[in-house]
């Protein structure tokens, strides 16, 4: 509130109300609506990958299952839990802003970011394992003599498994990239919260950033069973 722009605004008290909006409510609705639309484009962005996944999983089910089995599902499950916890801390941060609990809001924002970093750390371990096992698509890729779970004694076709790993790395990689962007957004939110920008009346950026974070969580909720848990029961 210490901004010098307060004086310019005249009767409106909120420096965050932009000139072309009539009311704060209009501005808030526009922002969250815009974010939801953006998330719609994100759905379609990942949608192309899901389409590719669906087709090749149907074609090469056994190879996909063998490749999926080589990923550490426990790490993936842990990461799911980590993201779910981070989603909880996001809503708690917003609730804290709504009820003027500044310390709680800051703590929850920090916690959200820590969960985000933990997710990326675990992801890093997973990637390192794949790298060590030569499961990263490329010249040194190797997936020889890996049994197909549903047909013991038959080996997976390395070329088809490579498609799985290509999709695995692109899908989780783009998801991780979204996490990194989310961490950037939350660093800014933390800074703004520290500066005292958010009040019970005005905390739209927190809500918008939260929407994004939850969406990234939802993507992972689908990625986890689709990539880690193909034909695991054998």
């Amino acid at each position: 509130m210490s901004d010098s722009t307060v004086a310019v605004q005249g009767e409106t008290h909120n420096p965050a109300l932009l000139h072309h909006f009539a009311t704060e409510e209009q501005q808030r609705n526009a922002s969250s609506f815009g974010m939801w639309i953006f998330l719609g484009t994100e759905v379609m962005f990942f949608g192309g990958l899901f389409c590719a996944y669906l087709i090749y999983r149907g074609w090469y089910f056994g190879d996909f299952a063998a490749a999926s089995k080589s990923i550490n599902a426990a790490l993936g499950g842990t990461n799911t839990a980590v993201l779910i916890c981070s989603s909880l801390t996001v809503v708690l941060a917003i609730w804290a802003a709504q009820t003027s609990r500044r310390a709680l809001m800051l703590a929850m924002l920090v916690l959200t970011m820590l969960f985000g970093l933990a997710f990326l750390g675990i992801k890093g371990i997973e990637y390192r394992d794949k790298f060590v096992e030569h499961h990263v698509p490329g010249p040194s890729f190797s997936f020889e003599h890996e049994e197909i779970p549903s047909h013991p004694g038959e080996y997976a076709n390395p070329r088809h498994a490579e498609i799985f790993f290509a999709l695995y790395f692109i899908m989780t990689g783009l998801h991780a990239l979204h996490m990194v962007v989310g961490l950037g957004i939350f660093s800014w939110l933390l800074w703004a919260a520290w500066k005292g920008r958010f009040t019970p009346e005005y905390h739209t950026p927190l809500e918008i950033g939260g929407l994004y974070w939850h969406f990234v969580d939802i993507v992972w909720i689908y990625l986890f069973p689709l990539l880690y848990l193909i034909d695991r029961h054998r």
Binding site: T41, F45, P137, A166
Partner: peptide, 30 residues
């Protein structure tokens, strides 16, 4: 807003396939 992201991801796949020799679109690699 609903169509453009699909070509965006398609181009990502093309670029990745060309740069890293993946096999997502290559019939020789399945």
């Amino acid at each position: 807003i609903l169509g453009t992201p699909v070509i965006a991801i398609t181009l990502v796949l093309v670029v990745a396939e060309r740069a890293l020799h993946l096999g997502i679109f290559d019939p020789k690699l399945g």
